[in-house]
Design a protein around this nucleic acid. Sequence first.
DNA 1: CGCGCAGTTGAAGTTATTCAACTCGTGTGG
DNA 2: CCACACGAGTTGAATAACTTCAACTGCGCG
Lengths: 235, 235
Amino acid sequence: MTKSVTLRDAWSGEANCLNCSLRTSVLFAGLQERDFERIHDPIDQFTLKPGNNLYHAGDRGDYMFTVRTGVLKLVQYLPDGGQRIVRIARPTDVLGLEAILDDAYHHDAVALQQTEVCRFPARLVRDLGAETPELHRELMSRWQRALNEADAWLTELSTGSARQRVARLLLRLVRDRETSECHLFSREDMGAMLGVTTETTSRTIAEFKRQSLLVETSPNLFLLDIPNLRRIAED
Amino acid sequence: MTKSVTLRDAWSGEANCLNCSLRTSVLFAGLQERDFERIHDPIDQFTLKPGNNLYHAGDRGDYMFTVRTGVLKLVQYLPDGGQRIVRIARPTDVLGLEAILDDAYHHDAVALQQTEVCRFPARLVRDLGAETPELHRELMSRWQRALNEADAWLTELSTGSARQRVARLLLRLVRDRETSECHLFSREDMGAMLGVTTETTSRTIAEFKRQSLLVETSPNLFLLDIPNLRRIAED
DNA sequence: CGCGCAGTTGAAGTTATTCAACTCGTGTGG
DNA sequence: CCACACGAGTTGAATAACTTCAACTGCGCG
């Protein structure tokens, strides 16, 4: 089924948080140097190839992750084997918040592109968070962000016709972005995000292309007609 | 549209947290007596009738709430005016977590039955939470619970055929309950939870009744045939 | 009594799914 | 280097599922 690459194979070095290029937008953003001194466990970096699993639902959650580059999908499975993508994670996002509470992971986390992540022990955050107000606040803010995303996926991506859902997904992909161009996920993944079949997704995308709402400027890079897509999304 | 009852009309007294009957399962469960001494702002109780709004999306979130009895729906609206129920709050659940982060409320919270809530200032939790590890942990746990619910609504209640969704909703209503009986929400609300129309919901419920998967033992109290509903839910 | 609302049901129309076929690009092995 | 297999995407046709609109029921309440 999934080619199971252990994280061992994906190791790509130890991180130096103090000099991290993402330092200002990352979970540990508020920490002072003296806080960093308390981090004794090494923070490792990993590089995942498309399709690689970062973790599986049910695995012991000993670690949390920060996404440095790339995209991952968070997948949940239904009793009948069907799958549903409940969220995607992008650079600066934190994965595995549930590990702070000593929970097993609740999703499969799968890279959709070449993806780099930093891994740190959940224990670290648990201990530091109880005493460091900056981290405490940052954690709450992360949870709230995940919750906002979850709610938005329900109202925007799982409501209305397939046309509307696809349009809303496309708009979501270019939100707070400089250009209105974006890469598309596989039709299968888009279907799993929207709760429709691969074929329906394909037909809808094809229709959007014919109507020039979507123009392929280079391989798998699409320029969006935002005003008209917005019209469809809001109908 | 909605009969707008201000919370002023619903006031029903001041709370005494130390003697609260929900004390052990509530947000402040971990607090010691000395912590309670720091709570100077009064904690008020309110009683809502079905259809009353506890708060509106966009309102300044100065307060958080604990549900004592009853049920509320959390509703989000689509650009086209359609509505979607993204979660339900039951006794011991906390509403308005986003207020800790100084956010406006993200949903409309509407009572589905006669409902009692306690109201406390978000500031209180913000200040206390930064210093009280028990509360800190409890808060994270509440956020995670909300997130679990959100994910479950996506995978269970917004995926598959209408039959499956209705069956899963029914099963959800009796989970961790002593009896397998439950009250049903209005068809309109159930539809808004499942992302299907009122009519489809009604037809499906009617079909379940005909097949005795659902037996009305008293007005709007239904006994569920759990094994067979589970079969449908998992298909 | 009669109005209004929630629920139900019917019939028609629309939309999405299903299953199958076919294309195209990539990569592998002969 | 070519042949071929494979997977992702696309498309068609038939079917199934859901929506829409409209009518009708039953019940509670002024």
